[in-house]
Design a protein around this nucleic acid. Structure first.
Length: 577
DNA sequence: AGTCGGCCTG
DNA sequence: CAGGCCGACT
């Protein structure tokens, strides 16, 4: 009855760490193993039982049976669709579709052990329960039949008098059209039966029907809970199962499904009560696209948040919570989100760069304090970069600890890669916004899906070396340009988002603009630019190693990297666009 | 000796 | 972006 938190946790964790499977699973709407294993051939129900000529003599009974069967079928196919008119459940004509869904749902098991023991082992139990369920259903149906046949002829007659020419068509047609919900709605709307049945009989019938529905519902729910909550099953499967159920109505669905979904008894399945908690990453963009407004940037989005976060929220916290934060941030909905998919036009300040800033790439001549307001500048540009130094050791030292915790977590679904892929490169580039000089331990902590070797580590270190190279080249270039433009005060050298320098950097590290460059990076950039400006202005560039002091300063200004980057399921697929 | 950062080159 | 080279550091 009460929501089972342990159900949601592995689901969320698995989904976010299994971005790829979840993404695939997100397209696989509904796990139909129940439907497949159910002894009833639902696809045959309408044609065999309802179209049987011998049944035409008793349309009323047939209609009732059809309703009962419809209820059960709806529940078996998908608890979330039990009252819906979705074509999913009523797709006798589209068995391939259901098969496709099943296939898609099983796809992610490739990530786990190929044997998929959970599924194979659980199936007999499910089948047995479903068999019992069927027997129970048949028993109850028999009781319904008996109860109705007591006053049978009369009711049939009366009913026939009301218009028998309608019903023969209605039954099969109803099922063929996939109107699964009609049975329920008829129950709810109390059709004309009471009019031609003796009230005691009708009352008992009603009770019987309600009991039948309730019993079937409970049985189905217990079976489903057993399936979905089975502990030995890999969490990934569990998550996907739920995802599949949830996907049942997030897929392109006919009108009315959502309404029926809302009518569901929420207590039927614990996990369904809070589907939003476990919404997989791959699925979220559908409902929460990246191009949601991301400006104005929350002023609290700065370095401090990330510096305090690890201490207060270590990885020992429920992973699903973290993953939800990750998902939220990745999708541009976190308070400190850096993700945006809209492109420069999202930013008013970026869309129409002034001619002045276009001419002066550092954009500093505009002297707009608002762009570098103290509230968004935890790092005083000129004087106090070293203020943050005391924070750095703790940040660095925590990496190993986090790494250890990370490794102990049941990330069985994390696919460890031997080599580095373009997604890793992209991630590294984005990480450059926060850290210019990452240690190898930090890299290991933030690439948990990478099997680090000496070669891989040096390759990644080399990446950042190349990033720095480009970065410093740009700094020197624009610093010299500022000097040649006659600028004398380095303090005016700030790098707003509509500057050429920013665009150059953004183009290099954030091609596609699917990440919102953090303010801290702009602050570091401004500082670096000023340092280069000072050095060149002072003629220090005659010294062959004149950049080294600058490097030393910049190397101490690494920021804490947001936790989102630690997700092993770092959603590379979000960048594939 | 091993590692790392920077520079140069392709 | 990677490879080669060099210097600094441990």
């Amino acid at each position: 009855m009460e929501p089972n938190p342990t159900l949601l946790a592995p689901q969320a964790r698995t989904c976010s760490h299994l971005a790829e499977p979840c993404r695939k699973g997100a397209r696989s709407p509904c796990p139909q193993e129940l439907g497949e294993d159910y002894p009833f051939r639902w696809s045959q129900v309408p044609s065999t039982s309802l179209a049987d000529p011998s049944c035409l003599e008793d349309e009323h009974v047939q209609a009732k049976r059809a309703r009962v069967e419809t209820i059960v079928r709806g529940m078996c196919l998908s608890p979330s669709l039990q009252s819906g008119s979705a074509p999913v459940g009523a797709s006798p004509g589209c068995p391939g579709k259901a098969r496709d869904r099943r296939r898609k749902q099983r796809l992610p098991t490739q990530q786990g052990p190929p044997t998929a023991p959970g599924s194979g082992r659980r199936r007999p139990g499910v089948r047995a329960e479903l068999h019992l369920l069927q027997q129970q259903l048949e028993r109850l149906q028999g009781q319904v039949l008996q109860a109705e046949r007591g006053p049978g002829p009369r009711s049939v007659q009366q009913r026939g008098g009301c218009g028998p020419h309608v019903l023969p068509c209605q039954g099969p047609h109803k099922d063929l059209s996939g109107a699964d919900g009609h049975g329920v709605s008829e129950d709810q709307h109390s059709p004309a039966q009471p009019g031609f049945l003796p009230s005691p009989v009708w009352a008992s019938l009603e009770i019987l029907r309600r009991e039948l529905t309730r019993a079937v519902s409970q049985a189905v729910d217990s079976v489903l809970q057993e399936v979905l909550l089975d502990p030995p099953g890999p969490p990934a499967r569990l998550g996907r199962s739920f995802q599949g159920l949830l996907e049942g109505h997030s897929e392109p669905s006919p009108p009315g499904v959502s309404a029926c979904k809302d009518a569901l008894p929420l207590a039927v399945l614990p996990g369904r009560v809070q589907p939003q908690i476990g919404v997989p990453l791959g699925n979220l963009p559908k409902t929460k696209p990246l191009d949601s407004p991301r400006y104005p940037i929350p002023p609290q989005m700065n370095l401090r948040r990330y510096q305090s976060a690890p201490a207060n929220c270590p990885l020992t916290a429920p992973s699903h919570i973290q993953e939800n934060q990750i998902a939220s941030q990745l999708l541009g909905h976190g308070p400190n989100s850096h993700w945006g998919g809209g492109g420069p036009q999202d930013s008013p300040s970026q869309s129409h760069p002034s001619s002045e800033t276009a001419l002066r790439p550092w954009g500093a001549a505009r002297l707009q304090p608002s762009l570098v307001s103290p509230a968004r500048c935890p790092l005083p540009l000129a004087s106090a970069p070293l203020e943050r130094l005391p924070l750095l050791p703790s940040v660095k030292m925590e990496q190993s600890g986090r790494r250890a915790v990370l490794e102990t977590l049941p990330f069985s679904s994390v696919h460890i890669q031997e080599g580095l892929n373009p997604g890793h490169l992209k991630k590294a580039k984005l990480m450059f916004f926060f850290t210019r000089y990452p240690s190898s331990s930090l890299l290991k902590a933030y690439f948990p899906d990478v099997q680090f070797s000496r070669c891989i580590t040096s390759q990644m270190i080399k990446w950042f070396s190349n990033f720095r190279e480009f970065y410093y080249i740009q700094m020197e270039k624009f610093a010299r340009q500022a000097i040649s433009d006659g600028i004398t005060n380095p303090k005016v050298l700030v790098v707003p988002r509509d500057s050429e320098l920013f665009r150059a950097l953004n183009m290099h590290y954030n091609k596609g603009n699917d990440f919102e460059v953090p303010d801290c990076f702009l602050e570091i950039t401004s500082l670096t630019l000023q340092e280069f400006f000072r050095a060149v202005s002072a003629g220090k560039d005659s010294d062959p190693s004149w950049k080294k002091p600058i490097y030393k300063i910049i190397s101490k200004l690494d920021s804490d990297i947001p936790e989102i980057f630690k997700s092993s399921s770092y959603p590379q697929e979000l960048f594939r666009s």
